[in-house]
Simulated scan of single mutants.
Amino acid sequence: MAGIPTAVLIGGAGPPVVLLHGPGEFALTWLRVMPELARTHRIVAPDLPGHGASGLGDAPLERARVLGWLDDLIRQTCPSPPYLAGHLVGGAIAMRFALEQGDRVRGLALVDTHGLHRLRPSLAFSLTLIGFLARPTAGSRDRFFRQCFVDMPGLQQQLGSLWVPLMTLALQGAGSSEGKSAVRSLVSQFGLRPIPDAELARIPVPTTLVWGRHDRQTPLAIAQRASERFGWPLHVIEDAADDPAFEQPAAVLEALTTVPALG
């Protein structure tokens, strides 16, 4: 896509939904909501550039190149304008795309998104993330992930045999020089600084916020302010931190049934 080798999961039939994951993740982090969504929609879940099985191509991941990549992805995989669901930096990418090409999108679902406020995680979140990126091991990964999930042991039990391969993929991505470069580029281009309120107010498509109550990376207060300021519906997911679709898929699916074009 746009000169970037891209791995994409596609399934289902119906109105298209593009699922954009967060930094350091991969398309399979949506796996707990994809099967149900695919009953009624065409699901397109790419690995972001430099993540998972996707490459970086031969040019820097500047904002225009990433948005061009998303434009090409939509052109090649979606028979009609899709709904964009974006998690963390994926949400910031979705918002930027909607601002530039609103006629190409039906709406946005922003899950604990970056781009609404300057990124200022909690101290514990920041320290464990730095430790994980500096020395990716199973131990540093688990210390960091305890900041990302409310009940990590319970989640491990729910996922059963899927837990180990998913955690292995996360560790491999953190240890990859290409993956680290991609995370730095995407977060610096889309995640660190907020989109100005005047621009957010110009997003031309229906926009819904879905947020974990215990998010330590992008606190709930950020979503509450955006909801009040822009009139975007906000769905707070209990017993979840910054990845509610992974921790509480049933609650997220229920929230999405209220979203225009997804319900």
Rank of each mutant, 00 (worst) to 15 (best):
2 A>S: 15
169 L>S: 14
255 A>H: 09
246 F>N: 06
66 V>R: 11
106 R>V: 05
151 D>C: 04
233 P>A: 00
22 G>L: 09
205 V>G: 09
81 P>N: 12
206 P>Y: 15
180 K>Y: 10
255 A>S: 11
165 P>G: 07
263 G>H: 07
47 D>R: 13
100 E>P: 02
153 P>F: 02
249 P>F: 06
19 L>A: 10
42 R>G: 01
166 L>V: 02
8 V>D: 14
26 F>Q: 15
143 R>D: 06
195 I>E: 10
175 G>R: 02
106 R>F: 06
105 V>G: 07
34 M>K: 01
47 D>S: 13
97 F>C: 07
44 V>K: 13
80 S>P: 00
172 Q>L: 13
225 R>G: 07
126 S>N: 14
92 A>R: 02
167 M>N: 06
88 L>M: 13
65 R>M: 05
32 R>G: 02
218 T>S: 07
210 V>F: 01
18 V>E: 02
116 L>Y: 05
155 L>M: 06
253 L>Q: 00
245 A>G: 14
246 F>C: 08
74 I>C: 15
228 E>G: 12
46 P>F: 02
86 G>P: 05
62 E>M: 08
116 L>D: 02
232 W>I: 00
229 R>V: 15
81 P>S: 10
101 Q>L: 15
36 E>F: 01
220 L>N: 01
6 T>D: 08
123 L>M: 08
50 G>N: 07
150 V>L: 04
259 V>G: 01
240 A>S: 05
85 A>S: 13
69 W>Y: 08
7 A>Q: 12
46 P>D: 08
196 P>I: 07
204 P>K: 10
98 A>Y: 04
15 P>K: 07
258 T>F: 09
48 L>K: 08
261 A>P: 05
104 R>L: 11
87 H>P: 01
210 V>S: 03
61 L>Y: 06
69 W>I: 08
29 T>E: 07
205 V>L: 10
156 Q>W: 00
144 F>R: 03
144 F>V: 02
162 L>D: 08
21 H>M: 04
29 T>H: 15
7 A>Y: 12
178 E>C: 15
52 G>M: 13
200 L>F: 03
211 W>Y: 11
96 R>E: 10
234 L>N: 00
226 A>E: 04
203 I>W: 01
1 M>P: 07
65 R>K: 05
234 L>E: 00
189 Q>A: 10
135 R>A: 14
225 R>M: 08
17 V>C: 02
207 T>A: 11
23 P>Q: 13
68 G>I: 09
247 E>G: 09
138 A>Y: 14
100 E>L: 01
233 P>V: 00
185 S>V: 04
173 G>E: 09
75 R>P: 12
218 T>H: 02
207 T>W: 10
128 T>S: 05
10 I>S: 13
142 D>H: 06
168 T>M: 15
90 G>I: 06
206 P>F: 11
101 Q>C: 12
254 E>P: 07
232 W>A: 00
35 P>D: 01
129 L>R: 15
39 R>W: 04
143 R>M: 03
95 M>R: 07
